[in-house]
């Protein structure tokens, strides 16, 4: 088997070469600097830094809250995308254009604004407080902030996929007596799933690294509401670049493994589809 399968389309060498070069210059060389920095610390130091009780607590919060946020985003992102694609209602265009806002708002602004809304004297916080639900300055606040910044990933990945779902198939299935749930499971989900997985992964990946918005709403108490990126900043404040690089390296590795497995899964499912003759 050769490196690539023959195709009559031109430009493979040029485009692949250019993208690999650019990728190396902008992404790989800088990340190599991070890895090298980590490598300058001894093995035992590295283990001590990354398995410190506080670091472990922060992974739990960072990865746990990100997982929860990405899940919330997948559920609601799917509903929102479905609503925007399938239904006509007043203000749909406006809402559609606002979906990208979490990207454009500087993360610090999202953090400040969310804290203002969810603090005990905020618009929403004042109604939650009597119920005993505290959002700002707790882990729930972290989840809220991470959900906000990941939302566009899911909605924007799923929207085109939902547009792709063939309505005729749905109708045919319905005529043949399939229930709503069956239609969803057998026709909608298979088409949308790869996009949903992409959206989930990207939302998760982005949430894990997020710093700007979270520090305003988290409370930042060590062992309880301290995220890993904050620990990295704390290390930097002490001029401990190696420690910071070590934590950054751990996060990078975990995210890389996550992303790679999802991408492999997708490639596999696409090949299966192709093999089945589409």
């Amino acid at each position: 088997m050769s490196f690539r399968q023959p195709s009559i389309l031109p430009g493979f060498g040029l485009t692949l070469g250019f993208s690999t070069f650019f990728l190396s210059a902008i992404v790989l060389v800088p990340l190599a600097a991070l890895v090298m920095k980590t490598a300058t610390m001894g093995w035992s130091d590295f283990i001590r830094v990354v398995t410190d009780a506080r670091a472990l607590a922060s992974y739990r919060l960072s990865f746990g809250a990100s997982m929860l946020a990405a899940t919330l985003n997948s559920v609601f992102g799917f509903i929102i995308a479905w609503t925007l694609v399938r239904y006509e209602f007043p203000g749909r265009k406006l809402i559609d254009s606002l979906i990208d806002m979490p990207f454009a708002l500087p993360t610090a602004v999202s953090g400040i604004a969310l804290t203002a809304v969810f603090a005990e004297n905020g618009w929403i916080g004042q109604y939650l407080a009597p119920l005993g639900i505290k959002v700002a300055y707790t882990w729930i606040g972290v989840v809220v902030a991470l959900t906000l910044i990941g939302l566009p990933f899911v909605v924007r990945s799923v929207q085109p996929a939902i547009a792709e779902v063939q309505r005729d198939l749905e109708d045919a299935a319905e005529t043949l007596g399939a229930g709503r749930f069956t239609i969803f499971r057998r026709i909608v989900l298979p088409t949308v799933f790869p996009a949903l997985a992409t959206g989930f992964t990207l939302a998760f990946a982005r949430a894990v690294g997020e710093y700007g918005s979270v520090i305003f709403i988290a409370g930042n108490l060590p062992m309880r509401t301290e995220i890993t990126p904050l620990l990295i900043v704390i290390k930097l404040e002490q001029f401990d670049y190696k420690g910071a690089a070590a934590l950054g390296f751990i996060m990078l590795t975990m995210s890389f493994v996550m992303l790679l497995s999802i991408n492999l899964l997708q490639a596999w499912s696409r090949r299966r589809m192709v093999a089945a003759g589409r």
Binding site: V27, G209, F256
Partner: peptide, 9 residues
């Protein structure tokens, strides 16, 4: 990958 890298990093 850049999406997953913390902005601080």
């Amino acid at each position: 990958l850049p999406i997953a890298v913390s902005p601080v990093i």
